[in-house]
Design a protein around this nucleic acid. Structure first.
Length: 556
DNA sequence: TATACCGTAA
DNA sequence: TTCCTTACGGTATA
């Protein structure tokens, strides 16, 4: 037993010692099957969850590898019962299989009679099952393929879906690498390949790693009509542009199905909003799914997939489904539905791996802690609970820190990002920097973006528009002054804004300005979890270290 | 017929 | 838990 960086505990938590020389290595090995729970300075706590183990299993890892990682990096002997539990949990995935039976249609096959007996007695599952054909095979009502998988996952017996797919209406699609002189990156190729051989599921890649190209590669494999679901119209148009540029598809073959237009073409791009729209309680775009014999459905930004789309997806189980996302984490905890209905994780590449290959820029993440003034602390302490976060997040004490940080990176393209308009307006005013918010007309946004790209303006203050607008120019410095409570994916997206490789190979700087000893600090910690899991280390510094020695002032 | 504006839901 | 943004679709306007 070497003095490794991990302490594996029988309650399935794993402690990682950050200062240990092997900590980065161990983190990388641990991440595929454990979720980061807490990340204070010296010791991070991970939890081994069943879903993470099943995702690892579906992505091709076996129990032996997981056990090896735990044993190899452990400081103390790993509790034997935990290792047994890991192996047993992983073995649960695939013990039940959904397959096509030539005589009976969809059937559930079990390699364990006891499991079959157990689930047949389950109240929610029993009605979806038909007659039992033999000792280990039971008929499943064809329309319950998705619902059954959801319920089986909930009771801890996730089924492997090998029932296959309809081909859908054929449509020629090829990647056009000739004229544009480009090639799929290795990881994009591998992601598309793993998806295709797995049948359906999710590909996880960092912001800016070219997920659209994985979608295009999947379409080129399917060579069939494709429905692409996106979060907003701007992103839909981006998809269309990329597909026209990178594939044999022409503009006429790609339809936009949104509030504005209702085109249905061999490749159709629809917004989540338009398909979840209801009149008198009835979904009105249901015909979109039936109007064509789709061979492939692509879900962009799976972590934002709205609940009704899960319901519709339950009925689409015979179509190939590809989910794309930067993070499997959902703030609403529906990761299990993604697993059951879209499919398990087929491929992921940690941000740090893509960084090492040079496709995204390295980033220096810094949390700057400011101390509230006596007055601010008093207001904070006596505030109503629903106002407390806003008060500490928008503390005026943050302003000089932001100013100083901008000065330190003078000339570098810098974004100041926040969630509260009052705060942003004030920052814009005192720093003399333009502010872009929801109410900023498109014309003006474009003008400012253009000036920012050209270097005429080196700093912009942006609101939550930064979460949506994909036209926002690349920057090399971001200063975050407030966020949407503890949203991890918002943090990831904000960092993602900085990660386009810099032409001089330089690194990006990501600052989070946080009020010490307040809710702001708690939420900041929660937000950082995802990126910490990806191997980003936040340095914590004091605001005074940024501001430098101050001359004593008279009358303060 | 095209565009602007507004209220609502998420 | 709030604040903020967006898309949709109806109505008004030319």
């Amino acid at each position: 037993m070497s003095g490794g960086p991990l302490i594996v505990q029988s309650d399935k938590t794993v402690l990682l010692e950050i200062d240990h020389p092997q900590s980065a290595e161990a983190r990388g090995a641990l991440a595929p099957f454990a979720e980061l729970e807490r990340a204070p300075e010296h010791v991070h706590t991970y939890r081994i969850t069943p879903l993470a183990l099943w995702n690892a299993r579906a992505a091709g890892h076996d129990a032996e590898q997981v056990v090896d990682v735990l044993v190899q990096y452990a400081r103390f002997p790993v509790p034997q019962p935990l290792l047994v539990d890991v192996a047993e949990t992983m073995a649960r995935y695939g013990r039940l299989q959904l397959v096509k039976n030539p005589a009976h249609g969809l059937v559930l096959v079990s390699f364990d009679k006891a499991v079959l007996a157990e689930i047949k007695r389950h109240k929610k599952i029993a009605p979806m099952l038909g007659e039992q054909i033999d000792d280990d095979t039971v008929i499943v009502h064809g329309s319950e393929r998705g619902h059954l998988k959801q319920e089986l996952l909930k009771v801890g017996w996730p089924a492997e879906d090998l029932a296959g797919y309809v081909d859908g209406e054929a449509h020629p699609i090829d990647l056009s690498t000739e004229e544009e002189k480009w090639a799929l990156r290795d990881y994009q190729e591998m992601a598309a390949e793993s998806f295709w051989s797995g049948g359906s599921g999710v590909v996880v890649l960092p912001c800016g790693a070219g997920k659209t190209m994985v979608g295009a590669a999947a379409m080129a494999k399917a060579k069939a009509t494709t429905l692409i679901l996106v979060t907003n119209t701007v992103s839909g148009r981006q998809w269309k542009r990329e597909l026209v540029r990178r594939t044999s598809l022409t503009e006429d073959e790609i339809g936009e199905y949104s509030g504005e237009k209702k085109e249905i073409r061999p490749v159709t791009i629809a917004t989540y909003q338009v398909i979840t729209r209801k009149t008198k309680g009835v979904y009105r775009a249901l015909d979109l799914f039936d109007s064509r014999d789709w061979g492939l459905v692509i879900y962009d930004e799976v972590h934002l997939l709205p609940a009704p789309v899960f319901r519709m997806t339950a009925d689409l189980q015979s179509r190939r489904r590809l989910g794309l996302t930067a993070t499997l984490v959902r703030e609403d905890g529906r990761e299990g539905d993604v697993f059951s209905l879209i499919g398990p994780k087929r491929y992921d590449a940690p941000w740090k791996d893509i960084e090492a290959q040079g496709w995204i820029a390295p980033a220096d993440c810094v949390e700057v802690r400011v101390t509230l003034t006596e007055n601010e602390r008093m207001i904070y302490a006596t505030a109503e609970p629903d106002e407390r976060y806003k008060i500490c997040a928008t503390a005026k004490t943050k302003i000089p820190v932001v100013r100083k940080l901008i000065e330190q990176h003078a000339g570098a393209p810098t974004l100041v990002i926040g969630a509260y308009l009052d705060q942003l307006d004030e920052l814009g005013e005192t720093l003399d920097v333009p502010v872009i918010q929801g109410s900023t007309p498109n014309k003006e946004r474009e003008k400012l973006f253009e000036q920012f790209r050209e270097g005429e303006i080196s700093c912009l203050v942006v609101s939550k528009v930064a979460n949506f607008s994909i036209d926002l120019p690349e920057a090399s410095v971001a200063i975050q002054v407030s966020g949407t409570f503890g949203s991890r994916q918002e943090e990831a997206q904000r960092l993602g804004r900085l990660l386009r490789p810099k032409h001089d190979g330089g690194q990006a700087h990501f600052y989070s300005v946080v009020s010490r000893d307040t809710l702001d600090a708690d939420y900041a910690q929660h937000r950082q979890r995802f990126l910490t899991e990806q191997g980003y280390a936040y340095r914590i510094i004091d605001a005074d270290d940024v501001l430098g020695p101050e001359l004593p002032q008279i009358g303060e």
